[in-house]
Simulated scan of single mutants.
Amino acid sequence: MTLTGTLDIKRLNKSFEHEGEAKLVLSEIGFEVKQGEFVTIIGPSGCGKSTLLKVIAGLDRGDSGSVRLSGSEIQSPSQDKGFIFQEHRLFPWLTVEQNIAADLSLKNKEVRQKVDEMIELVRLKGFEKSYPKQLSGGMSQRVAIARTLLRNPQVLLLDEPFGALDAFTRAHMQESLLEIWRQNHTTMLLVTHDIDEAVFLSNRIIVMDARPGTIKATISIDLPYPRNRIGASFQELRTIVLKALEHHPEEVNGGWEI
């Protein structure tokens, strides 16, 4: 029996047409994300990380292989797969609470209660009536996360959600995301270029190689939360991830599973 929120990818291949020729972007991708797990995908630009996330979201289709959520094949977008982009994509004419509710009516008592809960969860109490132009980048991204979590997705897909933020705000948002994850127990799959971010957040890190995108290594991050970014164990794991990105898997602690 497959648990709700479990993501299972087997032998996924994806190509794009380029100058009349099919170019393989993803090759034989396979991994599982367990219910409630936080997994990060990291790799160089052009390795297909965002393409992979779009296939998982149902926004694109693979050429072969399977992508399943809770045991069911993913064929199209749906509310059981939340997607957070690098840009917050809020409606500028709507307030914070209206953006979180989106197509749901705040006049509905149950919706109103859930929106209030989300505002508390992402720590935006007091900003309910504010418009996006009145918010910082980090606050706007928290609104986007709250809007997605309101729909109670089985898995939350995050494509470089903090890439446009300054270093201080980014660190704060990473801590906020961890708090949300620990409270909600939502399965999370994050794409990033940031090694520190990957080690700070994840239970596991999947390292990808480019042209075509393949899985190079899978690294378990067994540090307890909250994590000390300047601690020796953190820095050791950071070095392992860096080596996995720079070298072949067999050069990193003997390989595929670290």
Rank of each mutant, 00 (worst) to 15 (best):
T239R: 15
G58P: 03
T186A: 09
L53I: 10
Q235H: 11
N203V: 09
V122L: 00
G137K: 06
N203L: 07
Q183T: 13
R211E: 11
D103A: 09
T95F: 03
K109T: 12
V122E: 05
Q35S: 11
L177E: 04
P161I: 02
Q174A: 05
I258R: 13
R182W: 15
V155L: 00
L59N: 03
S220I: 12
G5D: 08
H18S: 15
H88D: 14
L149T: 03
R68C: 13
D60C: 12
F16S: 10
P92R: 09
Q75R: 14
R147A: 06
G5A: 09
I84W: 03
D196W: 00
A144F: 09
Q134V: 06
I145M: 07
E160P: 06
L177M: 12
L245W: 05
C47L: 02
G82L: 06
K216W: 01
R204F: 00
W256C: 10
T2M: 11
E17R: 15
T6Y: 00
K54M: 11
P132H: 10
T2S: 14
C47K: 00
H172W: 13
E32I: 14
K54T: 10
L149P: 00
N253Q: 15
G20K: 05
R151S: 09
G126W: 02
R182S: 15
I230R: 11
E110V: 13
D209L: 07
S66V: 07
F38Q: 05
I84C: 00
G126T: 01
S140P: 08
L201M: 11
F168T: 13
I41F: 08
L178D: 02
A144Q: 10
F31D: 00
S202L: 02
W93D: 07
S220T: 15
E197K: 08
L24P: 06
V207N: 04
G82V: 04
I258L: 12
V67T: 03
I221V: 14
E175N: 15
M173Q: 03
K133R: 15
E251P: 11
Q79L: 12
E236Q: 14
S233L: 12
P92V: 03
S176A: 13
I84A: 06
R147K: 14
A101D: 04
Q141C: 05
V96R: 04
S76T: 13
F127T: 03
S72T: 15
K34H: 12
F83V: 02
A171Y: 13
A164G: 06
P161D: 01
E179W: 11
Q113C: 15
V241M: 09
C47H: 00
W93L: 03
E28P: 01
K14H: 10
S45K: 09
L7T: 00
I100H: 01
P212G: 07
A198D: 01
I221E: 03
A146T: 11
L124K: 02
E17S: 14
G46R: 06
P249F: 02
T214H: 12
F83G: 00
F38I: 11
D222V: 01
K81Y: 03
A102R: 11
G30Q: 08
R211G: 04
H185E: 13
G213M: 06
